[in-house]
Simulated scan of single mutants.
Amino acid sequence: MPVTMTSEPIRMLNANELGIGASAAASGHASNRPDEPNVAMSHPLVGQALWLLERFGGVIYSGPPGTGKTWAANKVAAAITDDNQSRVRYVQFHPSYQYEDFMQGFIPKEHGGGFRPHNGHFVEMCEEAAKDPDNKYVIVIDELSRGDAARIFGEALTYVEKTKRGLPFKLASGKDMCVPKNLLILATMNPLDRGVDEVDAAFGRRFAQVAMDPSTEALEEFIDIAGLPDPLARNLVRFFEFVNRKAQTTPAAAVGHVYFRHVEDEQSLRAVWDYQLRFLLEKAYKLYPQEFDEIKGRWESIFRASEAVPNQAAGPLPATAV
């Protein structure tokens, strides 16, 4: 069934309204949980994406790890296509990913004897969408900034713009093609990846970017759903706000709320540090070990008695509490 887009003004939405907060977890959802229910076309996250896709060549969900970027892109794609997997293509960029993988190249013939031309993911999706103009097709690009995005798109980069959709152009092989209007592009990226400057330059005017930031509100709902008891819950929120305030000057140290999605007791909370956060933060503060030591001390303070935690709004904390 064709999707009707709206021209109504977009409104600002918080993490929970967008479905990336913890209320989504009530139905057992995460980007690595394929069994989770899809969101409806009426969901604010889908409405936001459709509004932006009317005006831009694509949408990039941008934020640090653990903020729900991949979840958002996947759920929007499923909603737009009525969960018809034949109309969605998922690809992941990486340093070895090339034009030949995404657009068009040559691959060895099955029984030897040379090479044959081969269409990449993007060309295949363009051709499929052009044959079915009454339906929306979606290509989801994970880790957009991990590859050389402008080189990978090649000639097509100009023609993903809304004003140039449907116009013919030639691939490097000389083959004619166009980017149909009903092919929608969703992407995710970490703003600290090495290729972000190139992505910003190439895609800044063509794509809309949606900031996916660490959310205290989402964390609190995760905690509530999992039943993490006080004082651990209270102390964790204070640590989360502390470490992300520090990340304003050290962006690589940002900690997403999804890291704490399944934390329900002291053991599972300690595991988050031992097997994930410790390594993230050590790397972020590699040149500033005293900063890491301060954060480590704040983390250990989570597990102190509740009497050590002052009843005050989040802000600069005394050395004895988180």
Rank of each mutant, 00 (worst) to 15 (best):
M1T: 15
P2T: 11
P2K: 12
V3G: 05
M5L: 14
T6C: 07
E8G: 01
R11T: 12
E17L: 06
L18F: 11
G19K: 00
S27T: 13
A30R: 04
S31Q: 14
P37S: 10
N38P: 12
M41C: 07
M41S: 11
H43W: 12
A49P: 02
A49C: 10
W51Q: 12
L52Y: 13
G58N: 04
S62A: 15
G63Y: 05
G66Q: 03
G66S: 06
T67D: 08
G68W: 01
A73V: 12
A73F: 04
A77K: 01
A79E: 07
V88I: 15
Y90V: 08
V91K: 00
E100I: 03
M103N: 05
Q104K: 10
G105Q: 05
G105Y: 03
P108N: 12
E110A: 12
G114E: 09
G114N: 07
G120N: 06
H121Q: 10
V123Q: 05
A130G: 09
D132G: 05
D132I: 06
N135V: 09
N135H: 15
K136V: 12
V138D: 01
I141T: 03
D148S: 08
I152D: 01
F153T: 02
G154K: 10
G154Q: 09
A156S: 15
T163G: 05
L167V: 12
L167C: 07
S173K: 07
S173Y: 13
K175I: 09
D176M: 09
M177I: 14
K181E: 15
N182Y: 07
L183I: 09
I185A: 00
I185N: 00
L186M: 10
T188L: 09
D193C: 07
D193R: 04
G195T: 04
D197E: 14
E198C: 03
D200V: 08
G204D: 09
G204E: 07
R205W: 03
R206M: 04
Q209R: 12
Q209D: 10
V210R: 01
V210P: 01
A211Q: 15
M212F: 06
M212L: 11
T216S: 11
A218P: 03
A218I: 03
L219R: 01
L219S: 01
E220N: 11
E220L: 13
E221P: 00
D224A: 13
L228E: 02
D230R: 10
R238L: 11
E241Q: 15
F242H: 06
K246E: 13
P251S: 09
V255E: 01
V258F: 03
R261E: 08
V263T: 09
L281C: 09
K283V: 10
Q290Y: 13
E291W: 08
E300A: 13
S301M: 14
V309D: 06
A313R: 15
A313S: 14
P318E: 05
